[in-house]
Design a protein around this nucleic acid. Structure first.
Lengths: 187, 187
DNA sequence: TTCATTTTTTATCATTTGTAAAATTTTTCA
DNA sequence: TGAAAAATTTTACAAATGATAAAAAATGAA
């Protein structure tokens, strides 16, 4: 998925402004296993995923909890860094070799006050992240782990093939053993 | 909490624009028990709470799940209606007699394209809702019901006094019986 | 391919949480 | 105030989930 499609999906900018935004974006690549964002750090960039898959996780005492997966077309950001310039909750680990587009937050912030279209692009961007976050919350609050696993199978079956089940179990809020039981029952 | 404080908390608008925004806002009052928003409806307004307390809940087959409480200074909105002009998940019920400020979404949308400050107000508004929603998700994903109850006791003790425990148990994701067990243990 | 490592599944037992029903407390309103 | 209704707590039992350990299967590197 290339950067033009990704930016247009948020809000269609006039051509000249699109170029202005492109000037702040660079393509970067990192290998599987790379830690892209860190929970103990204020992050300066957001990233759009051109190719690859990543997970957000957080360490809680002895173990860690995976709470988001990102794939082609998704945005990687520490919301706390982006919005409040504060440390966030998540480490982001690349689960495959990834091609990303990097955008410096400070450059974007500056543009918000220079042009109304870019301000509205930023508004739409936040609104869309909001909708996605609400969906995650609703899914977590309303559906059982079994239902959520079936949802993944239906809507993100490639994710299940590309990500090890321990991470998916953690994402679903259950142990890997429980997920195995669920998988055994479904068959 | 009056409307000026509520709007300023998002983003400080120049005086003239503040007036422009005020023109779209009216003060309304509804009694305890009133259903303000409905899940089966595309909502046309958002509301700011001047006084009172409300809950968002959703019906799931036989029972219902409470997934948000709003109090003075909070914004009541169906995110799906606001962002995507689609039906949302929630009914909003007033748990006390409430004084609210009502803002028509269509009026606000129009202003977004007329002035860059209001566009940035809208951006900040969405970003702040995003942070709050992420916090709810993180709390739900990382903390046990007992921990979350203790958080409420510490940070929102008045909420526990003003809201019946059945709703709080539902919000915590446990049964009322379990919450009673937790309360008995803490004492 | 083969061996070592990692990942997934299976089995057992302990703990937690839910369901249902009864008892108690609190609130509402005539 | 007092009776009825609503809300909360308690109890007993059942069901679901977690922890642990170990076996089986899959993956990856030499």
């Amino acid at each position: 998925m290339n950067i033009e499609q990704i930016l247009d999906k948020v809000y269609l900018l006039p051509g000249a402004l699109k170029l202005k935004l492109y000037q702040s974006i660079v393509k970067v690549s990192y290998p599987k296993g790379h830690i892209l964002l860190r929970a103990d750090k204020i992050e300066n960039s957001i990233y759009f995923i051109k190719k690859g898959i990543v997970r957000a996780y957080s360490k809680t005492g002895d173990n860690e909890i995976t709470f988001w997966f990102g794939k082609e077309g998704d945005t990687i950001l520490s919301m706390k860094s982006y919005v409040e310039n504060q440390k966030g909750y998540e480490d982001i680990e690349l689960l495959e070799d990834c091609e990303l587009y990097e955008l410096k937050i400070s450059n974007l912030q500056k543009l918000f006050y220079e042009d109304i279209h870019i301000a509205n692009w930023g508004r739409k961007f936040a609104e869309q992240e909001l909708i996605k976050t609400e969906e995650r919350l609703i899914s977590r609050q309303f559906r059982t782990a079994t239902e959520r696993y079936k949802d993944l199978l239906k809507n993100n079956s490639n994710l299940i093939q590309r990500v090890q089940l321990g991470y998916i179990a953690s994402y679903l809020g259950i142990t890997q053993v429980s997920l195995s039981r669920i998988r055994a029952e479904i068959k």
